[in-house]
Each structure stands twice: as structure tokens, then as C-alpha cells.
Simulated scan of single mutants.
Amino acid sequence: MKADQAELVTSYADGTIGVTIKYGKSYEDTWAVFRGTVRQVRELICDYFGFECKDETGLSLSDLVVNATNLAHGKGNIASILDARVISETPAQAPADDPWAAASATKPEQTSDNKSAWILGEIEKAPSIDELKKLWAANQAMFADPAVMAAYKARGSALKNG
């Protein structure tokens, strides 16, 4: 970790620690301070930065702080350099009479439970035998399905004769 990225870790007499993660290099930049036991600080950092704690449990607290620091620095840079701002993941309520909002709020209906539907569609769209071969090379496991292999052979034949 570079010296300017080093974060402040403080040990207290009561056995707790404090971790300070800065969003930038200057004193005026935002800081996030976490205090508690190592486990509490880990959970606080995960919650604060939106990390899935189960994904972070294999990391040491030091590694978790590095990941959080990188995220904080990235957000800080985006905000200061690009004059950007963070927006909510949930969109603001659109007016009730907005047909575009109503259309985008509806979820597409699942047309098939067939796990091979995607590859079958790609096989059908393949414009050449070379593209068909590339599709097979990149997705070999999907070709264990007899229906996929049959579609592959049929498309290859159609391209060869067409």
C-alpha cells in the first residue's frame, strides 16, 4: 500500500480498534471512521461499503480495508475529478401517467425454462460456419445437450448448402 493510501488504525485500552478510511489525500476529503472489535469493524465496513460479508470473510481485516480504501478513493476521484455524484440504485418515483416508466417497470416474461435457449438462439443467428465453430469452441459444455448438438449440425449444414 502506498504511503498516501495508508489508513489510520488505532488500538484502544478497552480492546477495540478504530479504522479510518479516507476518500482522498487531503484533510478536507471525506473520512469514514469505524470503531469496535475486529469482528464489529469488519461488519461495519462491509455494511458501510455495501460488500457482501460472506464474500469478504476469507480476507484479513487489512485486505478488507485495502478493498474499501480503493472503493472510497475511486468514488472520491469520480466525485472530484468528474464532478459526479452518487445516485440511488432505486429510481425515483415517476409520475403515474408516464407510459415510459410503466413500460420499463414491467419485467419481461420468461418465455422458456430451457437452459439451452440462449445457445440455440446463438446457433440460429450464426452468419457463417467459422462463427458457428467459434460459438462451439467458447461454449463446449452446452453442446452436451443433444438438442443443442442437433441444432448445431443443422445450422452447419444449412450454412454449407445455403
Rank of each mutant, 00 (worst) to 15 (best):
F49V: 00
F51V: 00
W100G: 08
Q140Y: 00
F49Y: 07
D98F: 11
E131S: 13
T69R: 14
P95A: 15
Q93M: 15
E56I: 05
T69Q: 10
M142I: 00
V65H: 07
G121Y: 09
A103L: 15
Q110T: 14
A68L: 04
S128R: 11
T106P: 01
P95T: 06
A103F: 12
G121H: 13
G74M: 12
V86H: 09
T111E: 05
P99C: 13
F143C: 05
A105V: 03
D97P: 03
S112T: 14
G58F: 03
V65L: 09
E124V: 10
K125F: 01
A92C: 10
A144Q: 12
N70D: 13
A72Q: 04
S60N: 03
P99S: 09
A92S: 10
L61W: 01
T57Q: 11
D83I: 02
Q93Y: 12
Q110W: 09
N70Y: 05
D98E: 06
I87N: 07
L82E: 03
V86F: 07
A72C: 04
S112Q: 04
A102L: 14
T57I: 08
T90C: 12
K107C: 02
V66C: 10
T90L: 14
Y48I: 03
D130W: 02
H73Q: 11
L61G: 03
T90N: 13
G58N: 09
D98K: 10
S104D: 06
E109Y: 08
V65G: 06
A72V: 00
I87Q: 11
W118H: 12
A94Y: 05
A94S: 09
N67D: 10
E122Q: 13
I78C: 12
K54Q: 13
A101T: 02
V66R: 13
A92H: 04
L64H: 01
K115G: 09
A144D: 10
S88H: 06
K75M: 08
T106F: 08
G121D: 14
I78A: 15
F49S: 01
A79F: 01
E122W: 02
K115Y: 06
I81A: 11
D97G: 07
S60V: 01
F143G: 02
F49R: 02
A138K: 10
D113W: 04
L120V: 00
P99L: 12
K125D: 05
T90W: 10
N114W: 08
H73E: 08
L82D: 02
V65A: 13
E52T: 06
Q140A: 06
N114M: 08
L71Y: 08
A103H: 07
L82C: 09
N77F: 08
H73K: 08
E56K: 15
Y48F: 15
W118R: 15
A105G: 14
P127D: 06
A105R: 14
